[in-house]
Design a protein around this nucleic acid. Sequence first.
DNA 1: GCATAAGCGAGACGGTACGTCAGGTCTTACG
DNA 2: CGTAAGACCTGACGTACCGTCTCGCTTATGC
Lengths: 187, 187, 187, 187
Amino acid sequence: MTELNARVGRPRSEQARDAVLHAADDLLLEVGYAALTMKGIAERAGVGRQTVYRWWSTKAEILFEASVADAEEELSVPRDPVPLADLTSYLGALVTFLAQSPAGAAYRTLLAAAQHDPAVKELIASRDVLTDSTRSVLARNGLPASDDAAARVIGPPFFWIMSGRPPADFPTATLARDLLHALTMDG
Amino acid sequence: MTELNARVGRPRSEQARDAVLHAADDLLLEVGYAALTMKGIAERAGVGRQTVYRWWSTKAEILFEASVADAEEELSVPRDPVPLADLTSYLGALVTFLAQSPAGAAYRTLLAAAQHDPAVKELIASRDVLTDSTRSVLARNGLPASDDAAARVIGPPFFWIMSGRPPADFPTATLARDLLHALTMDG
Amino acid sequence: MTELNARVGRPRSEQARDAVLHAADDLLLEVGYAALTMKGIAERAGVGRQTVYRWWSTKAEILFEASVADAEEELSVPRDPVPLADLTSYLGALVTFLAQSPAGAAYRTLLAAAQHDPAVKELIASRDVLTDSTRSVLARNGLPASDDAAARVIGPPFFWIMSGRPPADFPTATLARDLLHALTMDG
Amino acid sequence: MTELNARVGRPRSEQARDAVLHAADDLLLEVGYAALTMKGIAERAGVGRQTVYRWWSTKAEILFEASVADAEEELSVPRDPVPLADLTSYLGALVTFLAQSPAGAAYRTLLAAAQHDPAVKELIASRDVLTDSTRSVLARNGLPASDDAAARVIGPPFFWIMSGRPPADFPTATLARDLLHALTMDG
DNA sequence: GCATAAGCGAGACGGTACGTCAGGTCTTACG
DNA sequence: CGTAAGACCTGACGTACCGTCTCGCTTATGC
């Protein structure tokens, strides 16, 4: 028995955990990150404030836990045997994720918060779901799967969306073509 | 007469304005954006709270006014007659600005805040100093100075720094070469 | 020459003085003493704030100046040759003044303010218009015109109104009769 | 069960309540009513501002709660079998209460505030401790215990103290004698 | 008749209290 | 011992008024 005393007392309520994660997701879309409060999350979830603080330190941690799984799923596009088509469709998913998805909103928000909050920075660094998925797409198309290659894929759509431009106007096809050419040279 | 009543009452104190802008700059570096408060700025500046609210609505507005001028200066690199060298040195300045400069920190912070604050988004949109300077560098090297060309220049270093990687590791030269090639084709 | 340089410069504006006094009177009735502010008085009077501060230090001083003249007039009842009738009609005027008149409201307010503001206490002490008029009524009816005789006349209606009871219910006649009897004995 | 949910959550802190009431009492004497602030009371009591606002809306309510009990005690003089002596000693207690006692200062202050604050007026009307105690003294001496009889007892010393005269100079004995005579006639 | 001087309305200045809100901690009773 | 409830202290919020200080202007006197 490695966890002799682990089961002493009332077990954690899965119901409370889910309620908190959903409340955080909902409130992020409704009121935005700045107006998102631990108090508000607890009240929306119908949960005591202490229960929230017991399991998460900050609203960023809640958002992170709430969005990582969704993010992974939304970014996993089916592989296309033609590299150009594969990369293009992935870039499209990236733009959609960043601009439209609740999990994408959480990602942008967390990266933003990380700029002035070391704890969030560490959280993000521990699991950068965007870089990870991009590297796997590069790898499966025989391209270099380095961090800087990933940054060259993610960067343009990321800046595009972060600076508030319409996702539809982003030149996905052109970028895919150029990246494929450039990264093939590099490798 | 455009400003008939402009000189009624005590005129605005330039001294107070400067004190507020500098206080905001200093405090951003010292305590970060989240802990930056209107109250704190006013106290650091030795200024009444009302005086801050009289001229700026939010801490974002103060930071914006405080950083725009600095940003423009730091991003204006002397032109190199060789396009590759010119673009490379500009990319270097971009990385340095984003990663090291107080004005760059303010820029990252504001773009972050814009993700959940429409007022900040509008502010940024009214004067995106990064896109502007990039477009002018592209133009002077005979490259297409569109918004999406700019996004392809800014995006990679922007994501690199935003996700907390070391500025020194960013592949400035490679990116400059590839961009020059790709954008020449597009044009 | 007592006032050699007294007439140098622009003379005081009587118009501004009147506007301030009336504004104070009006605002006292409209918003009450607590919500009466120097700023509000100045704005209502259409006068600069400095002009108010130049001539009065506190809102109490303004009210005092605004009400003393009115008070004296309202409390000067025509003499009745029959002492009981004279005293009765004066008591009636007293009740009406305290309960209904704007100047009476100002008097109650100032006496209230005097309880915790020594400056107001001194102001009132310098000219207690209620005690003065009462003493003169006592004197003209051959009664002792001491301060404590005055207090015995003023006290009951004063407490009655101060504690918020309806003026009509105050037993003017009974009090006048008893006072006349008691004070005659004392003298 | 009238208070089914009364015991849910952390119970109110009696310690905080007492600290606030004492702080209000102390500060009233130290700085006066005008300079008495909710913020100051909270700080002096070592209590959060929200805790004060949670239980009391205004400084007047705090003073009222702080003084009523004291007032009742200070005004309950032991009965003297001789009516004149009983009334005289009660009048003495009244003067002392109004002029010297902290609770008396609170009473004067509240009656003052009631002149321009309907909420305070209602508060006072709900429990006029001065009128109540006076009526009971009148009753136990076989005199009419009406509101206007009470006003004739309280009025003179009340006006005396309110207008700032020395308590020692108030003619307690004369007033007691005259009142006894007059009210006996009325009854 | 022009300088000097003081009063004028306007409005910005550095402060401070307002009443509210969220933070994070604590203390209950219940399950 | 986890939970919901809710009171606790702390401290920032944005507003109002404080009393003071410039401004440009007006309106007197007096050299």
